[in-house]
Amino acid sequence: MTIAPAKAGWRFRQPSVIPGFGLTLGFSLAYLTLIILIPLSGLIWRSAALGWTDFWAIATDRRTINALQISFGTAFIAAAVNVVFGTLVAWVLVRYRFPGRRVVDAMVDLPFALPTAVAGIALTTLYAPNGWIGQLLAPLGIKVAYTPLGIVVALVFIGLPFVVRTVQPIMEEIDKEVEEAAATLGANRFQIITRILFPGLAPAIITGFSLAFARGVGEYGSVIFIAGNLPYKSEIAPLLIVIRLEEYNYPAATAIAAIMLLLSFVMLLVINLAQSWSRKRYG
């Protein structure tokens, strides 16, 4: 282990016998700066160079606002759906034994592994009016493909593993004894779930929700095929960035990206707060 410094005082790093600190930290910082930090600050610099009036004009453009609303709205609904079904899937995987459980467990990671464009064309083909699922829904008057509902479907697919993989390990750690104690004291199954199990799982569920939500807001590949991409109706913010870029309208693309980045940053902060809150309370 590292040796604690003998005397107090500010020190960049604690002494250690292990070599290579300068080399590895130097290389990591240089690489991080070149690949991530310089390009991202380029974006911030470009949007700052726009000036407040121009920035505000782009930000309050009706098409921009609608695209942001669609992105954040559909991502929110999809994350909420995933909270319900993701928690249920995690519960079934953790609590029940059935043949093929390990295969089902591995399948949950499919959205992490399947390229988004593949997911996009597959879901569109399924939910198109003549598709396997679409033709079942058409008589009921439900249109999924080429509507905002299609965006939700794509984001449910993308976000599912975030909720399952956040909730599952916490569920596995719940002590049987706690539930047994509650049962001994006369609690019924419903009370045990709502009063004992759910409070312990809530922080993980919140984190899973935030991760799925954050991913959904920025998602592009799986959505553009199924969305129909009608301006003001089913056009997501990342697509609007691409459209502005193709029009060589760099300022607009930059401004929309900066707004999205700012909102994502706020979400990241909320996720971290939720995590530290849950650690403090249940850790």
Binding site: T2, R11, F12, R13, Q14, S16, I18, F21, L25, S28, L29, L32, I36, L37, P39, L40, G42, L43, R46, A214, V217, G218, E219, Y220, G221, A237, P238, L239, I241, V242, L245, Y250, A253, T254, A257, M260, L261, S264, F265, M267, L268
Partner: peptide, 30 residues
């Protein structure tokens, strides 16, 4: 190693996960 700003560096490394893929491309166009 133990050094100042380690937690911040770890957060920066995760940054690309919270950026929309489209923005990841856009920054290089800019």
């Amino acid at each position: 190693f133990e050094f100042k700003g380690k937690a911040f560096l770890t957060t920066l490394i995760d940054l690309p996960f919270s950026v929309s893929p489209v923005i990841s491309g856009l920054v290089y166009v800019l």
